[in-house]
């Protein structure tokens, strides 16, 4: 296992700073442990099978085989699937833009075009390019659209990505735990500028966010 220090990085999905990203990272470690163990056991069995002598009788062979196939081929994957889905589906549901108790989440419209991000705050009329400012610990709904080709909005440390498709508007819910600057990147291939189509998400504390709004308006 690599030291956890190796997992940090400005775009690392393993260094979460938001609820959604944390769930995803948690899912990764959980599945790695579970599926990694299965993998090692299967390898070990194969290794043993190569070393072993042949079965004594055909009946013996048939019996063992039935256990292998029913146990390993049916029961094992079914159990794993149910387990993973049982944890995964509810976690996934919590990442969705569900209604928030006590008011509407902050809405921000992001429109992508080759190769920049137009950010627009409908409440305040603030317009930015390649930069999103959000308050900490507050659910934010990003309304994602595209002016030209398919792009994808992704801030790995805060949560999963969502595509921006011409003619459609998708809503991505993000929430940051601590103030700071997080990097975002276009994740869907969009032409020659794809590699450099990046942006920043600046997370302010509540007071700082109000100050920033004021500052921009003046």
């Amino acid at each position: 296992m690599l030291p956890l220090a190796g997992c940090s990085g400005p775009l690392s999905a393993l260094d979460p700073a938001g609820e959604s990203a944390r769930s995803a990272a948690w899912l990764w470690w959980g599945m790695l442990g579970l599926l990694g163990t299965i993998m090692l056991v299967v390898f070990a069995l194969w290794f043993l099978a190569l070393r072993r002598g042949p079965a004594k009788t055909e009946a013996d062979a048939g019996r063992t085989a039935r256990w292998w196939i029913i146990g390993g081929g049916l029961v094992l994957p079914m159990t794993v699937i149910v387990l993973i889905l049982a944890f995964g589906i509810p976690l996934g549901q919590r990442m969705l833009p569900l209604p928030v108790a006590g008011g509407e989440p902050l809405q921000i419209n992001v429109t992508a075009r080759q190769w920049q991000w137009q950010v627009n705050y409908p409440d305040t009329g603030i317009r930015l390019t390649d930069e999103v400012h959000i308050p900490v610990n507050t659910p934010v709904d990003l309304h994602l659209a595209s002016d030209d080709v398919v792009h994808s909005f992704w801030v790995p440390r805060l949560g999963g990505k969502l595509d921006m498709i011409p003619g459609h508007t998708n809503v991505l819910r993000l929430q940051a735990d601590e103030p700071g600057t997080y990097r975002g990147q276009c994740a869907e291939f969009c032409g020659t500028g794809h590699a450099h189509m990046q942006f920043r998400v600046v997370v302010h504390d509540q007071a700082g966010f109000r100050r920033w709004q004021q500052g921009v308006r003046e």
Binding site: L74, M78, I81, V82, I89, P90, Q93, L96
Partner: peptide
């Protein structure tokens, strides 16, 4: 028999999730 299990599993999300999210 396998298809029966598979058909049942398909319905599971239908039971635990709210539609149209």
């Amino acid at each position: 028999a396998c298809s029966a299990v598979a058909s049942l599993l398909l319905a599971v999300p239908g039971l635990i999730m709210a539609p149209c999210l």
